[in-house]
Design a protein around this nucleic acid. Sequence first.
DNA 1: CCCTCTCCATACTCGCCAGTATTTTCCGCC
DNA 2: GGCGGAAAATACTGGCGAGTATGGAGAGGG
Lengths: 220, 220
Amino acid sequence: MRRTTPSMPARLSASAFALFAQQGIDGVNLDQIAAHAGVTKGSLYWHFRSKHDLVKAACAHYYRTYQRRINEEITHLTDPAERLEHTLEVAVRTCLLDEANRVFTMEIFTLSVHDAEIRRGWQQFYDSVRAFYIGLVKAATLAGALRVGDPEQAVNLMLAAMEGIKLRALFEPDICSPAEEARVREGLRDILGLPPHHPAPLRARRPSRKSAIPIPAGMA
Amino acid sequence: MRRTTPSMPARLSASAFALFAQQGIDGVNLDQIAAHAGVTKGSLYWHFRSKHDLVKAACAHYYRTYQRRINEEITHLTDPAERLEHTLEVAVRTCLLDEANRVFTMEIFTLSVHDAEIRRGWQQFYDSVRAFYIGLVKAATLAGALRVGDPEQAVNLMLAAMEGIKLRALFEPDICSPAEEARVREGLRDILGLPPHHPAPLRARRPSRKSAIPIPAGMA
DNA sequence: CCCTCTCCATACTCGCCAGTATTTTCCGCC
DNA sequence: GGCGGAAAATACTGGCGAGTATGGAGAGGG
């Protein structure tokens, strides 16, 4: 499938992403990143002007990977509801359950506090994600597959919940374990107004009062 | 009210917190922190063994400040519902609307990813906060002031929403502007099952479908 | 009046790492 | 084959900042 071997800038971006996500941006130096990509720092500086440049490239790598994956996964689907459902499923798997992605976003968030350029980049990405979801929800609504008061509001709530879960996963890794995938996904589906995917959930839960972010009870 | 001038370790902790929250942990060096407290690095190292120690002290400063403020604010209240309501109000003002606190927690979260000790400290603090809220909710429920299915679940959802809002505030500062204080607070009250504080909200909103984290609509 | 202990200041070391300068290699091409 | 340029390696610089060594000042106290 892959036509050519990835270009050196692409490899370096990927290495930067991988190491940043593993040891933190400040915990990695340029020699390590270059080594990870199989070259040395001299070559790295041929392609990038500074570490800051590399951080931006790592972000771009993340954006590209995310968008490409979603596209690949739903491009063959035509039913609006299925498209929405599958997108959510992929997002949960890649954004929440993948620890590298969680850590990387965390790093970028903190960096964003003090770096307007990085912040604007992420903001743009985030806006595109939101717009994408809103489009999916509206399409699904038109097709009569779900009923939701305000699509924008619902999507915003769902995305905020995702961020909240991400954060909590830091302190309670079980929340985002593969074993919990179903519960997380169902919680988010619920927020978007989608019916439960498994008609009979694995674990009986009391008829929940309102939209509930699935957080394991046993943690105190 | 203040009996004695604060001890030097306390002043250093406070300075560390202030500067960390302003410029980030990696963006501040020990000379700056010492200078902010009116001493020099030599003295700093008399009280703390390392920068890591100082970070822990800054966290402890945050914990203390938070808990003391809440206590002071509700100690004179006896009605369970009022205690819960006032706690929420203070939390919104100090955790969400105060940018320094937002930035500091962000920094600590990222640090927590790679530092088990800091992580455990925060986890403990977080547990105590959750337990505190659950106690308040249960008391208010017993007093018949509110009806909520599962207090633990509601509190968890509310706290997760808080974190989500904090994160989004990074990219949309308006969310946590003083002007939005009321909306944020009402949204969280709603999650906890508390009735709206102002019977007639300033701005008419459609009868919300389910518990809605108040996120301004105009952002796309 | 000296001794010591606490607390704080000055001055220094030393390693790390982003960034730069200089070479070397590899290729396409005339 | 030798020329030129892209891409990579090697070797170096320079600054920053955590941590240390040391040197007082002041307070008690014997």
